[in-house]
């Protein structure tokens, strides 16, 4: 059960972030960045598919990967709160992406050493993609942070609003702790050190002030979400809810 929940946490985080980034399709600030955002979205949706496929094999009730993505409700989703935040503007999206990329690079590196072969292979594959994403989001953090007065103001305010959701990355819930004991999940304590290194170095070059740690929002990993998730699901799941089993 814990393995299933843990895999769903990884899958849901990937899917919701993929869906959010996908919302930029046709709305990017310039064509190249529109393509960048949707390319990254595609990587996340691909990652989510591999993870849901694994979940559906773990669970012998015959549910398909699509069932997991399209027919579950808010309280069943285990994604990080950070990824369900609306895109707001390009700077906000970049900041959200940078915080998560700086997390995923060390996280996937550790997960690729997992005792669970299936997850380790998926992590190994996804790692290269996340390294490429991190480079893109780091460069944009610096361009916007150390850019114009307006871009600096927006990226700083995005970081300020997102900060309280960053603590959840490093607060393991019971199923993660169990997976850590079994040698399946990485130890987020170690990830935190490396995440801080990336964040400090990019923030300093981007002239972004790192917010002070205070109270952190949690709950996403256990199905307690912000109001935003319901809106994403109603958009994303509309077709399957209206025409169950529809295929093309």
């Amino acid at each position: 059960m814990s393995l299933k929940n843990y895999t769903l946490f990884l899958a849901d985080t990937s899917l919701i972030l993929g869906q959010r980034l996908g919302e930029w399709c046709g709305h990017g600030p310039v064509l190249e960045q529109d393509i960048a955002l949707t390319n990254i979205a595609l990587d996340y949706v691909g990652r989510a598919r591999l993870l849901y496929q694994y979940v559906s094999e773990l669970d012998a009730n015959g549910k398909s990967e699509d069932n997991y993505a399209m027919m579950r409700e808010e309280r069943e989703f285990k994604n990080l709160l950070l990824v369900e935040h609306p895109n707001i503007d390009f700077g906000f999206t970049v900041a959200r992406q940078f915080l998560i990329d700086a997390f995923f690079v060390p996280y996937l590196e550790e997960l690729s050493k997992s005792k669970n072969e299936r997850l380790s292979h998926i992590a190994d594959k996804a790692l290269k993609e996340s390294q490429y994403h991190l480079r893109w989001s780091s460069e944009w953090m610096i361009r916007l942070g150390d850019g114009t007065e307006e871009s600096h103001k927006r990226i700083q305010s995005a970081v300020n609003s997102l900060w309280e959701f960053s603590g959840e990355l490093f607060s393991p819930v019971p199923y993660e702790k169990e997976m850590l004991l079994e040698g399946i999940a990485p130890d987020v304590e170690n990830i935190l050190t490396r995440w801080n290194q990336s964040v400090n170095s990019v923030f300093s070059e981007a002239t972004i002030i790192k917010p002070k740690d205070s109270w952190f929002q949690k709950g996403g990993k256990e199905g307690v979400h912000t109001e935003h998730l319901g809106y994403i699901l109603s958009d994303m799941q509309y077709l399957q809810r209206t025409y169950p089993g529809q295929d093309w």
Binding site: L42, D43, G46, R47, A126
Partner: peptide, 8 residues
């Protein structure tokens, strides 16, 4: 083997 996980 896939080139990229989401490659259609």
């Amino acid at each position: 083997t896939p080139t990229y996980v989401g490659c259609p």
